[in-house]
Design a binder for these strands. Sequence first.
DNA 1: CAAGTTTTGAACTAATCCATCCAAAACGAT
DNA 2: ATCGTTTTGGATGGATTAGTTCAAAACTTG
Lengths: 198, 198
Amino acid sequence: MARPRTFDEEQALEAAMRTFWRKGYEATSTEDLCAATGLGRSSIYNTFKSKHALFQRVLHRYTTTMNARQMAVLEDPARSGADRIRALFAMVLDGDARDRPTGRSLGCLGVNTTIELAGRDAMAAGILERDTAHRLDALRAVVEVGRRDGSITSSRDAGDLARFLNATIAGLRVSAQGGADRAALDAIVAIALDALTA
Amino acid sequence: MARPRTFDEEQALEAAMRTFWRKGYEATSTEDLCAATGLGRSSIYNTFKSKHALFQRVLHRYTTTMNARQMAVLEDPARSGADRIRALFAMVLDGDARDRPTGRSLGCLGVNTTIELAGRDAMAAGILERDTAHRLDALRAVVEVGRRDGSITSSRDAGDLARFLNATIAGLRVSAQGGADRAALDAIVAIALDALTA
DNA sequence: CAAGTTTTGAACTAATCCATCCAAAACGAT
DNA sequence: ATCGTTTTGGATGGATTAGTTCAAAACTTG
């Protein structure tokens, strides 16, 4: 019927994501995207329509895959509520992507985009808002699980505890990007967990 | 001897800061800076040398003034250790600058720059690293004060508690920028404080 | 193998980027 | 008032930006 693509769309998205993740939206040029994906300009624009639309695909892909991985941990029936949260933090710290040359953490594309773009880009704000709402729901559910199984004894409102945990994750990501080492991040997690049993 | 300036340098820095704060470094054009300061290109380049050098001045100014305000609270001898930390959080939430049209929080220029620029700009990374080290020192000292006066009972390492508090501030800022309202932020603070007495 | 459709790469646009240049204006000092 | 210096605004420069165009290449289908 017609000439087929010589590249894998998912693979291109993955490469584009790494670039946006490392440099941010504004600082990533279409030239950078060509170099990272190995594609020509025409292929990119033919497939993804625009830099902005490509970023939308990337951000949506990032939030859905990240959220899916986190849900798997948060809904693990074999663990207590507090243990699931511990496992979530471990996943955040273990999965912390780092820049090859500098060794500096890339943080989280969601947090990065919240900071750089969400304030003036409705598309980004919308995707991130839904992502946050989704995670807050799951965290609140896990807090209630932990309350029932006795692993969480704080009398604070479950929704508020969920917001606290979400903020802690963001704080960890910023700290990592600011140069904190693993031991420091582990200590932060341990203290945050104290609040669940206070 | 020569023609004097018709503008106030500090006032120009203030206007430039607001612009960088709202739009970020990359998305702020020299045109934006002219409009915000009311200066012509020549005046800006004559005074500040380059966009990058101007941003350096802005970031340094921001960190030193913010840090000074925070130190005043953290070293207030009239309050207990825990109360000083409460006051610091209150200052962070009260001082939360918001964008006029959208009402969305501008977050913290320090956090924003950590995310957007520090990974690939040594100047920004250096300023922020010193700023963080300074704040961590002050927070650790306050934790030790609180431990002595009995307002902080956690047995965790004081340096680790300082890192936790610093991460919590970052988490608050990201949450604010993500759209959390004041009540949600207050709840996060209350729970974080629980960890100090756990 | 030929027709038909899509992909692809390179050249190209128009706008915007940061920065510089220059001449005129504006002041202080003598 | 005039000289010397600095500021100032506008014009300009070269690089880079996101995005388009177009013809040739490549592949499937009949």
